[in-house]
Design a protein around this nucleic acid. Sequence first.
DNA 1: ATGAAAGCGCTAACAC
DNA 2: GTGTTAGCGCTTTCAT
Lengths: 358, 358
Amino acid sequence: MDKPLMSDGPVTLAHVAQRAGVSQMTASRALNGRSGVSAKTRHEVVRIATQIGYRVNVAARKLSNGRSRIIAVLAPDLTNQFIGELLIGAGEAARKVDYEMLVYTLFDETRRSHDEVLRLLQQFADGLIAILPRGATDYVKALYAASMPIVILDHRGEVAALPTIASNHYEGASMAMRHLLELGHTRIGFLTGPDEPGASTERLTAYQHVLAQHGLRVDPHLISAGDYTQRGGFEAARRLLGLKKRPTAIFAVNDMAAFGALDAIKDAGLSVPNDVSLIGFDDIPMAAQTHPPLTTIRQPLVWMGRSAVNTLLAQINGIDVASPRVTLPTELVVRASTAALSATGRVPVGTRGASAGV
Amino acid sequence: MDKPLMSDGPVTLAHVAQRAGVSQMTASRALNGRSGVSAKTRHEVVRIATQIGYRVNVAARKLSNGRSRIIAVLAPDLTNQFIGELLIGAGEAARKVDYEMLVYTLFDETRRSHDEVLRLLQQFADGLIAILPRGATDYVKALYAASMPIVILDHRGEVAALPTIASNHYEGASMAMRHLLELGHTRIGFLTGPDEPGASTERLTAYQHVLAQHGLRVDPHLISAGDYTQRGGFEAARRLLGLKKRPTAIFAVNDMAAFGALDAIKDAGLSVPNDVSLIGFDDIPMAAQTHPPLTTIRQPLVWMGRSAVNTLLAQINGIDVASPRVTLPTELVVRASTAALSATGRVPVGTRGASAGV
DNA sequence: ATGAAAGCGCTAACAC
DNA sequence: GTGTTAGCGCTTTCAT
């Protein structure tokens, strides 16, 4: 029985120590790369551990010294690609440095107090990455009270002293607008998200500012209320298309809304980008899969997740993070849903503005 | 200091016992609803525990008696709604019976051996629900070897003796075909998924069988290869639409592929359902958000997740599960992407088949 | 009905 | 450089 694999219970440190003819402590030190072990002993211990398939017991380690090398992620929803991408970045970063990542999901129906959840997570994880649901100001309070390293990922405004990772919504939205403007569009519709402080309103603000900066009037009729969903984007876009003077371009607050808008535009018998240019925000994987593929503003989701892990790890290891607020850059991804106004054929170059309308 | 909340370390059982003036064991018994405690004592212990905010330490409990009341879910991917819905069902079911659910995600890049992952999960969880990536036969082997309660959710064929939860793909696909047939369609295209044993091929088989059962020829040209993705569905549908005699209805192997087909149909200047009827499979949330909303076959994803938890819990509690293989029923969800052939206007009633073709 | 002792697997602290 | 002891928070077993 050289490999007591699944034979008689899991392989423990005691087994390793015994085989190596050393004490548990020496074995522990050797395996954890601590000093105070001769190179020869260390090598032997490691060899044996590998041979018999030893793996530390995280529960025991957590109980003993408070460290499990596990980080927990609190996620509000697992049915959207946005969060999925964030998780990919976090997970890969964690595993790269020999940590594990576990995801805890929030559900509406099963009531757990915030405090309860955080305590559970603290019992097995060394730190927490929190992706908060919209408008969860109460959760933020619980986060403050928790005595555990925490990083907030993709925050929604209200967060104060906790380290946060986010991307630059204002800048991203500005880029989107400049892109459209450069293509010659001046009647640009905006599909909003929820009307509360956060990414959605930051993007709307940029929309208004850039328009103003270019000496263009911000027409309230061109701002159509949506809610981050495809259905919401569809309805909001449809309203815009029903306008006497419909926009020649639409900027959707996020990709999902843009997908809805795409449906609405095609449904109206119009073509993207020939009749209407469309730009989204986020660059979730699906954005590259529509037809035409969506021009959008990329949030570096994977990078954000990675960054959250690194910030968290710094905290866990007691390294004082210089700036607890990381803002990552966005990027314009030009695909096929936007085109120059002149290409629409509806408004010949040089006549711009003269013959607009349905 | 009545509530030693975050003051000096977490509240332990010892604190509760001390306050109640009983031994730890009595406190433990009282809190766990075990016998051997007088009603009065029990009540008092519970009162105090609640008051000072006691919560068992899962790491300690796991170490002590092997039970954490946590179930782990192994998920191959967190960027798709299908899995998200499965997880909702599982999570809610678990929390309803006072278990917690934690999700462990697989990533391509960070190599962990299957064995390694399972051992980690076993160290903190009481059981595992495995949602396997496609073609992961090697994972199944590791699952067999693992000494922990396991349930496979949404299996892909090859699974043998392990308990599994799945829905009836063959029946669902048959329903889809019958629906189309009842609407008068006879030229029905099929958008396939990956060509390997599993849901995709089961659905294809049903497509072929039902056609044959109705005395219709299975035209290989109407079977177009896709891959479960939107892009794949788009390309596959486009090929179908380019046929001399294009189908009047398309059955997509899953909803994502149907979304791609929707794009392709609209792109060809055709209308759904007026020119082409379209039906998907799965009924992920997005299916209700497209325009037109997608007719599809619902897999009871939430129910499947719930069922997996219940089956797992039975195993954990040593109850011998009668049938370790649960197959849940699918359901036809008629929305707006399918319509009677006569309504297409291309083939007048009574003349069916006479003037088909582009 | 209640309690004391021992131990789950590990590591911090202190020996030697 | 290595070993011993104690203890993390809990529950088992075996008293009483």
